[in-house]
Design a binder for these strands. Structure first.
Lengths: 237, 237
DNA sequence: CTCCGGCAGATTGTTGACAATAAACTGTCT
DNA sequence: AGACAGTTTATTGTCAACAATCTGCCGGAG
């Protein structure tokens, strides 16, 4: 593991080894460096990171609670693999939380918030107009994160982030390949409009609709890929 | 800690020490045996449970992720104490998840589900009619748990349970002292009706309203207590 | 009298070794 | 040959010791 000396010093000593190991394993899982279903040996990982098994154990337990790995007592841990039905469940749960966040922002909005959200929405529209998908994706993530942040409900925010991370376990066919970007842009506008009006009910509904449609678009890309030959490997758990 | 021999044997060896310790500490926290803000020393707890510090550490880390304790690196863990604003946040998040669960049950309902829910609702009404509050509370918890279970979204269920547990950290004035039980009963009816009709939108809205009103009722009891002299100790975090 | 630096005690973070459990292998018997 | 029992090996669960960090106290300087 990286020594303390080669990190920015404001990060030193505030982080425990467990935290660093946790982040590192999480990174490897989310980037696909460790593939779904793969076994995670404590000793091997500890060696590979240059630490002892203690911190690795704690990190693995934490990742289990986050839903990223599943561990069976006395038999070790494997990277969790989730099926299509589970992704849909996660999508829906995420939608429920997101809709609530939109509602809260509509109630708590300040000028600064509206300015930030406005910039993000406009930025996405412009990015799409010039076919700059990378920027669009970045702003899209930022937009959702901003809303959760602005909701002022820290627990909702962390729950949301946990669900999003868990969704990344589904990584045949990228989650970031979204079709029908125009519809998505319009929905962002709807959310922003409702929030600007301070219409909490409309904001909640717009947020809900956005994720419901997002899920549908996501499923459509799967069907397309299905039809075009490379069918996703069904995980029959 | 209790030895393996004095547990029902189907539980033996499927549980690790960490799991048992986790449950025990959680119990002590939720029952108020360890009060909010109290320090949790690893060594002391390990001694008290007859295990070494390893399992205790892992359990504490898990409880931190559940939001029941907060730990600062190198300084130990304390039972988290949450303020009124945080309880409201938790209530709202719980409401968002619950509303979604109601929606899903409305879509997936079977005869068996409807029968169970119907029995629970009727049971609550009868219990209230004969002033049997204990039964009412039990059925009330069961009713909500059933809905989450029937939603078929395991992640939503565990998220819901986590939020509910966290709410128990707020334990000045019991959470189970609910006024205006009649309104609550009527809302349960609304939820059940919508689910029976298969009206997903109505079910979601009924579920949302139920928790929103529940939160309001909860706040009312606090105001009452406030007015009647014993004001809750404001946690100024 | 207050503030600062440093020492002592206690608590946490980390490690390596030991015990217990599950998987893999081998040899035997039918 | 196939199946089963006993053994071997690898991996996890637990423990106790070691190192690092923090808290509280004490004394001295300003």
């Amino acid at each position: 593991m990286t020594s303390d000396a080669d990190k920015p010093f404001h990060a030193r000593a505030f982080e425990t080894l467990t935290t660093q190991v946790h982040r590192e394993i999480e990174r490897r899982i989310l980037t696909g460096e460790i593939k779904a279903g793969e076994k995670i040996g404590e000793a091997a990982l500890a060696d590979s990171l240059g630490v002892s098994r203690g911190p690795v154990r704690e990190a693995i337990r934490a990742l289990e609670l986050a839903g990223l790995v599943s561990v069976i007592a006395n038999r070790g841990a494997i990277v969790r693999s989730i099926g299509l039905d589970e992704v849909v469940c996660l999508y829906e749960l995420r939608g429920a939380i997101f809709a609530y966040a939109c509602e809260r922002v509509a109630r708590r909005r300040t000028e600064a918030m509206l300015a930030t959200l406005h910039d993000q929405v406009v930025g996405m529209e412009e990015a799409v107009a010039r076919d700059d998908l990378a920027t669009y994706y970045r702003l899209n993530v930022e937009f959702h994160a901003s809303l959760l942040e602005m909701s002022g409900n820290a627990r909702a925010r962390s729950a949301y982030e946990g669900v999003v991370k868990e969704m990344h376990l589904f990584r045949r066919r990228s989650l970031s390949k979204v079709p029908n970007v125009d519809a998505s842009l319009a929905e962002h506008r709807d959310i922003l409009d409702a929030i600007e009006r301070g219409d909490a009910d409309a904001a909640r509904e717009a947020g809900r609709i956005h994720v419901v449609h997002g899920c549908r678009r996501f499923l459509d890309t799967l069907d397309e890929a299905d039809a075009s030959g490379r069918r996703p490997t069904r995980t029959t758990e």
